[in-house]
Design a protein around this nucleic acid. Structure first.
Lengths: 344, 344
DNA sequence: TTGTAGGCGTTATCAA
DNA sequence: TTGATAACGCCTACAA
């Protein structure tokens, strides 16, 4: 096997330049105690000799890394990949790396991923919880070491940490109100797993909007979908449309199931939005492509990622205590498209 | 500020158990020279005392990390996020972490990201090149240190490394052949940036399919789209359909532009697939939602990620020389949907 | 099977 | 402004 080219260290630079390693180190870090001239000279030679800092060694010394860990359920979802993209851009600008891990919505994976990220001595953690997660003990390790945690989107109810969320209650309320404004009287709801408060709050918003408008809540119209998948959306729609008194509107907690509802209803010859108005949640790319285009709630996914990373960067700079509790709530927007627009 | 809880080291375990640190180290790594009994005892106490290995220290010592770096243009694209997802799952199972970086298709970012990942002493690198990248010098650093590089999808023509790709030529040929089989005589092509061989080869396949079937190549039907965006797709379609002798088929090098073409043609009252048959590339989620559903070429994105990670893991185990050249070519599939199916 | 000792590359402290 | 030294936690060659 070929022998690796020996890497240049500050010792090599010290020998070359007749300075001590400490002077080299300081110059490379732009320490103010070193003269401008010396600093310049050292940096020039460092570049010429192809010196690359060993961040591992620096991390060992300082016991922290310029790395942010991200734990999410799955990367290949439009909302999540945009969120990561935002976080990466922000972190990168500040010289931070991004370490990612997927739980695939399994609690067990989340726990072991947390350990793996902890062992990598990340400087901060961004988390969107796995569907299964109810216990949060695996995050205590980080708190003990004063490593900031930012929960985003799927956040726990109680845990001292940063939280970056949208107002799911309000979004659910406004989505439902929108359908009511279009004349819907019997509005169904595709509700996700209720132990996740993103879904729980959307449902609460739905219920309150009905009540506030004097509409009856019919439990039969509330469909509990475990994973909010395309298939579950189809099943639920089938069931709803086979009722003696079918709904005239559906508020789905995600776009996947909502699109599925559109396709299913169309197949049955039901007119959208005249007979059935539909609104989803997330503003995934498919929502503007399906026909009729799906009304939905738009999330600022990329921005949520940026803010999450920003929180960690600030925390590190200010050396704050990780036992903090701060909530950042972002605005959502009701996007009205043809699946619910009866005013045309 | 709260003081961090002191972390448990192998020295603490050594003191607690009256063993030397080396014995502790060996036991934790399941070294065979330590007796089963001792190993078990040490691991039990380590767990009880909340010991977490410091991978930073281990990395400094061994001069390598269990981390795979990934460089891509943007995370929030269906193909890319699936590729990363596959790589992450495979890496995680082997105890490796994934570090990601986006170039946003800028050469400059790719260069600085390469340095950042190098400085993190990654154990291997997975790269899909930025649109702008033509020079590859920034990857030499890795070769010098015998760090394996796997280029995936957008790969360079010449560079000793692993390459994981699909047969773009064949896919382009078959997509075009499919349109010809449907009776198309004048087939347009949405060609991406030609210095990227994924696009270059798709175009070659298109050209050869035409020739092999005795169809004339009309340069006017070959649209050069810089970024293959939705907007560019619309413009190109507009232009094509305004011709005196418009095409009766379009092979687009991606789904985004193809979907755009469908929407644009429909708006003009053109019947798809009867008057205009369309096939895309990638099998993005939108392709099965648009109406009529888009025929396309499916990529095994997740699998490409898995294989890429696998290559790096194997390379590390076998301690191979990074100055290697190995190409893995994966199958693609022509997915026929209504946008091109005239046989119904 | 277990222990001793040195070093991975950097940086903070103290001294000059 | 610069230099000497120790320490971060782990691993491994060598010794016992």
């Amino acid at each position: 096997m070929k022998k690796n080219k020996k890497e240049v260290t500050i010792y090599d630079l010290a020998k070359e330049l007749n300075y001590s390693p400490s002077t080299i180190s300081r110059a490379l870090n732009n320490h103010k105690s070193i003269s401008k001239k010396t600093t310049k000279e050292i940096q020039k030679v460092a570049k010429k000799m192809g010196y690359r800092p060993n961040t591992i060694a620096a991390s060992l010394r300082s016991n922290k890394t310029k790395t942010i860990g991200i734990m999410i359920a799955r990367i290949n979802r439009p909302f999540i990949s945009s969120l990561i993209s935002g976080a990466e851009n922000t972190a990168r600008k500040a010289g931070y790396n991004i370490l990612i891990s997927q739980s695939n919505d399994k609690y067990e994976n989340e726990v072991s991923n947390a350990k793996a990220l902890y062992d990598s001595r990340i400087g901060g953690l961004i988390v969107s919880l796995a569907m299964e997660t109810k216990n949060l003990d695996h995050f205590k390790l980080f708190i003990d070491q004063n490593i900031p945690i930012v929960f985003v989107d799927r956040v726990p109810l109680e845990f001292n940490s940063y939280r970056v969320i949208i107002d799911n209650y309000s979004a659910g309320f406004r989505a439902t109100q929108h359908l009511i404004d279009q004349g819907c009287k019997r509005i169904a709801h595709f509700a996700g797993a209720q132990h996740l408060n993103i879904y729980n709050l959307r449902k609460k918003g739905y219920l309150d909007a009905l009540k506030e408008n004097g509409l009856e809540v019919d439990e039969e119209l509330i469909m509990d979908l475990e994973t909010m998948s395309f298939e579950e959306g189809k099943e639920a729609t089938d069931q709803l449309l086979n009722m003696d008194n079918p709904p005239d509107g559906i508020f789905s907690s995600n776009d996947t199931a909502a699109v599925s509802a559109i396709l299913c209803a169309k197949e049955k010859g039901i007119k959208i939005p005249e007979e059935l108005a539909i609104i989803g949640f997330n503003d995934d790319p498919i929502s503007s492509i399906v026909e009729p285009a799906l009304s939905t709630i738009s999330h600022p996914a990329m921005k949520m990622g940026e803010i999450s990373a920003q929180k960690i960067l600030e925390h590190s700079v200010k050396k704050l205590d990780s036992n903090i509790s701060e909530i950042t709530m972002l605005d959502t927007e009701v996007i009205v498209r043809n699946s619910s627009n009866r005013q045309k």
